[in-house]
Design a protein around this nucleic acid. Structure first.
Lengths: 334, 334
DNA sequence: ATGAAAGCGCTAACAG
DNA sequence: CTGTTAGCGCTTTCAT
């Protein structure tokens, strides 16, 4: 049995395909035709062909969400934020994983140019090249970015205010008496690493604290990395607190300190960044900074909707959302 | 500037749209036409319209992967397994989240019926209703399932052998001298809960161990749940080991025991299931069972490819892959 | 190697 | 409220 079309339905219901089409799209038809149509549709097990409809309407009602690695979504709540607003406007979300895309950084371009989606949200926390940003501006459909465009990119983007987050952490440590504060840095190819480190350095200066290059350890976001970083930091006896630029490394650091018999926070204070789920389960529960993930997703989606509607006043702006300090028990009041 | 079509390209290159189409699809054209075509395509910034092509070719070269919740992917490596084989056959993957789908359990049906994808992989560890399974069999395109179809469903499905996994855990505990073994159960609406519990009960009987209803605590997969379950279990003084049906709850249990001053594994042995990343980072590192996630994804994708090719010998079978015991330090040799 | 023409399944004027 | 008609942008015979 071949798939049935709108014409088959029309014939069986003794009417024309225009009427079928109208009925399917919510227009009024005479009661008898409606009944005949319903019967025909059921009998033929008819389903409209999305590709034909998309061709003529020149839209799809689906938004593409491109993520770095579908199997490694750190910031899941961003996606929930996106879905919640996009769905409320009648759009569906289709997710695509960049890792799978042999074409590299530009692999999603086809999606945008070939009419597979009506709009695109690119979610990535890797640094974006200016070259790629330029390409984005040329695309045929509206696009917004989540994860910072380091530059004044001219593309609508939203991110957490990384610099502010670290700054609050350092201020907090300062308030409770810490003066010698070390830092564990994230990998260079992440935009967040740049801004968080900047937050650390600037806040130190602002507070008039001594600034030592050797107290900054470059690492890789992982527990293993934080573990190792801490082993280097423990050589410096005057350090009383460590700011880790994410929770994972903070936990690795915590673990290393414990293994060596140091008690956190008695002997050493440690803070992280992200407020991941585990951060409240480690011992001691980690003081950190909560990323506004859901709002980030919402803001991005809202911006995209505005573009889709062709609103003129939606500028290509860079939106930074403030994170929130979460005080738990990994710091000692000196 | 309107989007250019294949006709614009043809005109500019002084040829016909058939020739453009052929060229785009890899057929040979005269050298001069090729050059003219390349020039025209670049000049017009031409991109083929995927919807038009899909309409006439009646396929899309994309496979839909439907997951329960895109923002909560426990079993990420399954997706990597899927992508690796699907990509090698020239298919792209598009992911859809069922949570977002107000239409509930049947929300993905449109994808299958309206020609948006060529095939579907449904990834879910929730119990599936027979009703839904029946619907699946009627769909217009090939479908495979990941996560068990409890019944003899008549649909190609792959899952880990949950029963065997728990059985190996219990056997291991038995070998190192444990006789009084409690169990923390997962929530009822997950297929895995049923099979794992069955593995616990059957292995106990098989080994001639005493079986007590009160040593089985129903919980919810979460750390908090495991935490609470352990608080109930600690009332039974003769228990020497606890099998948790997943790692999360095992870690919650571990934490509770520690908080009460019990030392694991000296005072109590605990094992989990999954081999999640954290399980090797908790103290003590958790003995558990490793799910063959990547292979599960590969098997499912391979099955789908076979169906897509119309291979007759690909039966609608239920494939169960064996998990692997991972011994770490959360158990004491009695 | 190329062009003409038909058609994929649907929507949207237009005329009634 | 309904039918007729003309496309949407592309692929694919069938000729040449």
């Amino acid at each position: 049995m071949d798939k049935s079309t709108i014409i088959d339905v029309a014939k069986l219901a003794n009417t024309s395909k225009s009427t079928v089409s109208r009925y399917l799209n919510g227009y009024k038809v005479k009661k008898e035709t409606k009944e005949a149509l319903d019967r025909a549709i059921r009998e033929l097990n008819y389903h409209p062909n999305a590709n034909a409809r998309r061709l003529v309407k020149n839209n799809t009602q689906v938004i593409g969400i491109v993520v770095d690695d579908i199997a490694n979504i750190f910031y899941a709540d961003i996606l929930r934020g996106i879905e919640s607003v996009l769905n409320s406007y009648g759009y569906r979300c289709a997710y695509y994983s960049r890792t799978s895309n042999y074409q590299g950084e530009f692999g999603f371009m086809d999606l945008a140019n070939e009419g597979e989606v009506d709009g695109l949200i690119l979610v990535s926390f890797l640094k974006r090249s200016q070259e790629m940003l330029d390409e984005v501006k040329k695309l045929a459909i509206p696009i917004v970015l989540i994860g910072d465009a380091d530059y004044d990119s001219g593309v609508f983007s939203v991110d957490v205010n990384n610099e502010l987050g670290i700054s609050e952490l350092v201020h907090y440590l300062y308030r409770i008496g810490h003066r010698n504060i070390a830092y564990i840095n994230g990998p260079e190819h992440f935009s967040a690493s740049y801004w968080r480190k900047k937050g650390y350095e600037n806040t130190l200066k602002e507070l008039g604290l001594s600034y030592k290059e050797s107290w900054i350890i470059d690492s890789d976001w992982t527990k293993a990395g934080g573990h190792k970083a801490m082993s280097e930091l423990l050589a410096f006896k005057d350090i009383t607190a460590v700011v880790s630029s994410n929770d994972e490394m903070a936990i690795g650091a915590l673990l290393y300190a414990s293994e060596l018999g140091f008690h956190v926070p008695r002997d050493l204070s440690i803070v992280g960044f992200d407020d991941t789920e585990v951060s409240k389960w480690v011992y001691p529960p980690l003081t950190t900074v909560k990323q506004p993930l859901h709002p980030m997703g919402e803001k991005a989606a809202t911006g995209l909707i505005a573009k889709l509607k062709g609103e003129q006043d939606i500028q290509e702006q860079r939106i930074l959302i403030d994170p929130k300090l979460v005080v738990r028990q990994s710091c000692r009041n000196l």
